[in-house]
Each structure stands twice: as structure tokens, then as C-alpha cells.
Write a protein that binds this DNA or RNA. Structure first.
Lengths: 210, 210, 210, 210
DNA sequence: AATGAATGAGAATTCATTCAT
DNA sequence: AATGAATGAATTCTCATTCAT
């Protein structure tokens, strides 16, 4: 007798949101397996009977949390046309956003990866998330290639996957494994490596040096 | 009650090895949580009672499996002085090895990462594994810098982490998420990006082209 | 808090009746245990809260449903003086009514039997129901014995229980277990067996044959 | 990890049997729904973990109990050629056995009937049980008809169902609903009604009277 | 009268681990 | 060394019922 989100009173909506928030925190802190439904309920301050008023199972809650995370990351991935001019600056801005988005959610994304092995629906969500970032990277590279600013021999998609993976992976190592580094330095280096790797022509790169 | 590895009859050693092998396969296929001790025993063809003759717990078995995996990856990470001459070729060889080593064990390494969150001992093992690869990468880069073949401004350790992460991460996406690509093309592109990123001077790079 | 039936507005009476009807259908289709209060409410189109405005518990609803069923069966058990004349024809008419009454409600009666084990009140209801049919059968037999048409050695009550049970039981086997038979043939045979069993004298029986 | 019955040590077999016995008693006393797995375990003196070593679920235990009951009833239904000669005496003997067999298991059989509604496998078991008794009755009648001792116009199967139902149903009313009667009188009357109903010719019937 | 959110006792089941043989 | 029966803590989920609005 799960109640759908759009058939709820204000109070119901509030409770539901509280549960999602509590679940997100709990999953993020302890991992999917380690979280018991009762933990989430305790954190949300409701009985576990109430939990099942809103979610059919722990997994259903996770799906909801995962969807929220993915949604936020989509939102965070938009560079905005502001940082316009300089290609190098654009890459830098994108990398900063990328690093932040993944840093903020790295544990949940990894849980999603893990859970995606078993759950069909989650797998799709994960692939979709990845695709958004890959496509963004690939499109950016293609544009630079068309402008004659990047090595035209590089396969845009594969390159985007690899360099995007470099950023994503660093987010993990940095935060989850505690590799010491400060954001500025990290973004600087990631950007430099990225730019060089795609052969961003000296013209723009040197702009920074002057 | 647990029998130490070196105080075993030949028969005992065989049983123990069978269990480790069975555990490794099971963990790799289904993940740590999803594997029951009984599954491992069934696969190894021994009773549950026997399991506890050799391992104090499921976790102890995992530790053993993880150690074996890490050992193999260490072994696999040695480039060998054979591919000597050309820096680019060395990087290429290293990338091929790197990619293969991580591909072969990506699921288990991820499980190790996950488990490391909770277990102190595993955390150390994981950091150690990572360190070996990072150091190898950093050392290689430092050597190139000393020879004037790579950008001396790059922090060797951070650069190695980032570029190594690129390879490691690609191994996951490629195998676990099924991104289509063939090894040759992948190694080629990874190497090209890596070389360019560290500013490997044309002199050597072009050596390949001629 | 429970509103009594006679202190209700027209609207309230309607809601209450809807619930009883919905409960009866649900119980009949799925059995007492399998029916959740929510199922009844959904079927009746009211909220669970409303249910408790009219019934103190699920069991209270069942009691009401059971009483209704028993009432209907009482009503159905009246042969009416119409089929007067011939004793055999009277038995046949009674058997037809008997078979129909039990057929129509066999599942609910069985649930009542089952529930009666635990609930004192229901036990009485059940015994009362049974008694009506037993008494009717016994009275009929006694009359025939007095008229010299049936074996005077038979204990009227016990005989009525046994022959009545034959009809009742056949209703179950026929409908619930799907033993194929058509009503006409079944009533014919039941009547023939019944008449012969009580030694209904040829005089009347043969009346049918001529 | 349910262990099959034939792969058990003596101790295991003993435990399993204890559980079946405990389950049978519990079901008989309280009904399927009212019995918790823990009740059975407590009665058997084992932990509930042990229960699941032998049975996959409460339902699986019930299936086993039901099969045992049906087996016993099959065994009990054999009249044996001893009571040979007199048809009336044979019917009487059969009725006594019939009444006893159903009396001894009436609650469990009713539970089986109830459960059969939901479970396919149980339904078959029930139908099989019924069929054995029906066939036995039908065969007996057919033989009498061939010998010219019973009304040849009666459909053997339908008649057996009806008269068998009379006995079966009486067993319920007698034991479960507490209708007072002693076995001798009940068997006498059931037999007299049965014999008369099928038109068992006076020749044999009167044999009893002399 | 009606609603529907909240409750929590209760039941089934899993599985790592122990221990007698 | 090996076996496998026994254990019980832990966890998920259900559903009748209460109560504030």
C-alpha cells in the first residue's frame, strides 16, 4: 500500500522527504548493506511502519536516493556560456565542476555502481549518468577539433571517457582514500594534463603563461 | 583452532588452496556480501565445518584472497628492462600491463575498496597496492624529467595518480560497464594521451612515427 | 467510537452496507486470513480510517458478514407448503433448496466453521445455523414416521444430520473441488438415496414412477 | 541449504522426524495460520535455525505433514478380505474404518482443503486422497450391482461421493462440532442408511436381523 | 463522517559460526 | 582433517489499529 508521491498531503510529502534525506545520509556514511531500514527510520524520527507507507523496500528507497543524486549531478554538470572565450579556461571550469560534482557524491555513485550489478533499473540510471558526462566531454573536444585547436586524430568519445575518468577517479582517490591535495592545485594539474593530452595548441595555452 | 598455513600436511594445504580459489571465484562473480560461506564450501567441495578449520571467518578468507590478488598485480606491474630504449614504447608497454592487470581484477579490487572502508587491515592493503603503482608511475616520470624529456613543472606523484587513474578507471568502464573498445586501440589512445600530457618531447614521440 | 446501525444517517448506512458487501465478496474470494482491511476498504472505495467508524475490527466485520449469510440461508431453507402433496416431491424440493443454499455460500460457511474454532460468538452462530437445518430435517422425518411412511426405528435427529450432511458435503465437493455433475442429476440422486435410506414406502416412491 | 531426507545421518533423520511430528500436533491443535514456526521448534525442542536446516518454509513442513496424513489414511482405508461374506457386514466394516480414518484427521484434512485453495501441489494431494476413497466406494457398489444386490440404476461414482460424503461429514460434525453420539450407534445408523440407499436387497440385510 | 499518516507488535527467514562426533 | 547438525542474532516486511485533522 505504497502511496504515490503525487497523492500526498503536505504532511505526507514532508515525511517522505525526510526519509529520503535520512536515507541518503545513512547510505553515504555507511554504505548500502550496512544500513538497516530501522537506522533510516531512527534518523528520520519515524517508526519503521511508516517507512513502508512510502517505500516498498530498502532498495526502493535507494533507487530514489540514487535518482536524486544523479539529478543533482546533471544539474551541476552545466558549464554555462559565461566562461566563454578561452578554451583552456573553459576546460578548467569544466574540470572544477566535474571534480566537485563527483567529490560530493563519490560514495553514493560507487554504491550505485555496485548495486547496478544486480539491479537492471539502477544499471540504466548509472549508464545514463555516465553518458551525460561523456557526451559533454566528447562534444567539447569535437568543437575544439573543428576549430583546429585540438588534435583531430583523437576519437572524441573514447578520449572523453579516458580524460573524464581521470577526473572522476581522482575525485575518489582524493576524497575517499585521503590522498592529500588542495582543490586549486588539483584542478590546475588536471586541466594542464587534459589540455596537453588533446594537443590544445600553444596559442591558447600560452595565453595563460603570459 | 585455525591451522596455520605452514603447519599443514600436503592434504591440508591442498584443501586450503581449494578454498582460496573457490572464494576468489565466488567473490569475483557475486561480490562480498552476496557470497555465503556455504557457497564457497560447495564450490570447493568441502563441508562448512572444514572451512573453519582453515579460516577464522569469511572476512579472513577475503583478506587472503585480496592479498593474493594484490600480489599478482604487483608481479604484473613490472615492465622489465627489455622494452628499454624508447620512452614512448616504455609508457606504452606499461599501460598495456597496467590495463591488463586492472582489467583482470577490477571487481575484486573494487570489493577491496569497498571493504577497506570498514576494515583497517584491508585499508592498508589497498593503500599499499595503490602506492606501488603510483610510485612506479612517479618514478618513471621523474626519470623522464631528469632526462629533459618531460615537463619538469609537473608534480610527479600527483601526475602519476591522475594518469594512472585514467588507465585504472578506463579498465572499469571498459570491462564492468561494457564500453566497447578493443585493447589495441585503447592502449594506443591511453599512451598517446599520457605521453602528450607529460609533454614527452617530439624527438622521442616521432621516433615511433618513423 | 463505533456507530451503531440504527443511529446513522442515510449516507452512513450506505457506507456501512458497502463495507459489508465488499467484505463478503473479499472473504468469499480469498478467505479470512488473506483479506486485509485495506482490501475491503479499497473495494468499498473508502479509507481505512472510515472502516473503523463502522466496525471495531476485521473480526467484527466478519461476524456481520457471517450473520448476513446465515440469515439468507435461513430464509432459503423454507420449503413452503406449496409442494405439499407428495412426500417424495417434498424431499426433492427440500434437497434442491438445501443444495442451492449451501452451494451459494459454501466458502463462507467453511470460513465460519474455521473461525468458530477460535471465536465463541461465531461458534454459536454456526451451531444455530446447523440446528435450523437439522431440525427441519428431523421434523420432516418424524412426520413421515408418524404417517407410517418412513422407518420408525431411525433416530430422527441423527438421521437428519447424516442425510443433511450428505447434501451439504456434496455441495462442497461439487463446487469447491469441481466434481462434474449437473444440478438436476445431483438432486435426483440425492433425493433417491435420501428417500430409500429412510425407507420411504414404495407407495409414495412409486408415485413418481407412474 | 535444505538437506534431503535421504542424505541424513541418523541424528538428522531423528530431528527431522521430531519436527514433522511437532508440526503435525501443532497444526492439528491450532490450525495452519495460528502456528508459528517457533511454536513448532519449541515443541520439537530445537532452535528455529534448525528448522530451516530441514524445511524451506512453514509451508514445506505442512506439505510434509499433509503427505503423511494422506498416507496414513490410504493405509487405513483397506478393508481387507477378512470381513468377506456378508455385503452388509462389509459395508459396516468399511464405514467404521472410514469414520475412524476421517475422525482421526478431520482437522488436518480441513486445513489441507483450505490450503489447497492456494497451493497447486496441495490441491493435487487432496484430490488424490479423495479419489482413493471415492473409487473404493464406487467399486464396492459396482460389485454389488453386478451381483444383483444393489440398484443397478445408480451411478456408482456419484453415489459413492454422496454416501462417502455422508460419512465424512458426519465425522466432522461429530468430532469438531461436538454432536453427541457413540461410535457404535453412529456406524450402525450410517450403515443402515447406506445399505438402504443403494437398495441392498433384504436377503442380505435380514441376515443381520436374524 | 471521512481521511490518511503513523504506529509497532509480530512473524518469517538468513547465514555466519560453534561444536560434538 | 573432515563432517554436518545445531544455533540464534539480526533483519526485513506486514498489517490491524489509532488518532489528529
Amino acid at each position: 500500500m505504497i502511496v504515490k508521491s503525487d497523492a500526498l498531503t503536505a504532511r505526507g510529502r514532508r515525511t517522505r522527504e525526510t526519509l529520503v534525506r535520512a536515507g541518503r545520509e545513512a547510505f553515504d556514511e555507511h554504505g548500502y548493506e550496512a544500513v538497516r531500514v530501522d537506522d533510516v527510520c531512527a534518523r528520520a524520527g519515524v517508526s519503521h511502519g511508516t517507512f513502508y507507507t512510502y517505500f516498498a523496500s530498502k532498495e526502493a528507497l535507494f533507487r530514489e536516493v540514487a535518482a536524486a543524486v544523479v539529478g543533482e549531478m546533471f544539474a551541476a554538470s552545466v558549464v554555462g556560456p559565461a566562461a566563454s572565450g578561452d578554451p583552456y579556461a573553459r576546460i578548467e571550469a569544466a574540470n572544477r565542476l566535474y571534480l566537485r560534482a563527483w567529490s560530493a557524491n563519490s560514495r553514493l555513485v560507487r554504491m550505485l555502481e555496485q548495486a547496478a550489478t544486480a539491479e537492471e533499473g539502477l544499471r540504466e540510471l548509472l549508464l545514463e549518468l555516465r553518458e551525460v558526462f561523456v557526451r559533454r566531454g566528447a562534444d567539447g573536444l569535437r568543437r575544439l577539433q573543428e576549430q583546429g585547436l585540438a588534435d583531430p586524430a583523437l576519437d572524441p568519445r573514447l578520449t572523453a571517457i579516458m580524460l573524464g575518468g581521470m577526473v572522476e577517479h581522482f575525485a575518489r582517490v582524493w576524497l575517499d582514500l585521503g590522498e592529500p591535495a588542495d582543490e586549486r592545485a588539483a584542478v590546475d594539474l588536471l586541466t594542464r594534463l587534459w589540455a596537453r593530452a588533446i594537443g590544445l595548441t600553444p596559442a591558447s595555452t600560452s595565453a595563460e603563461d603570459t
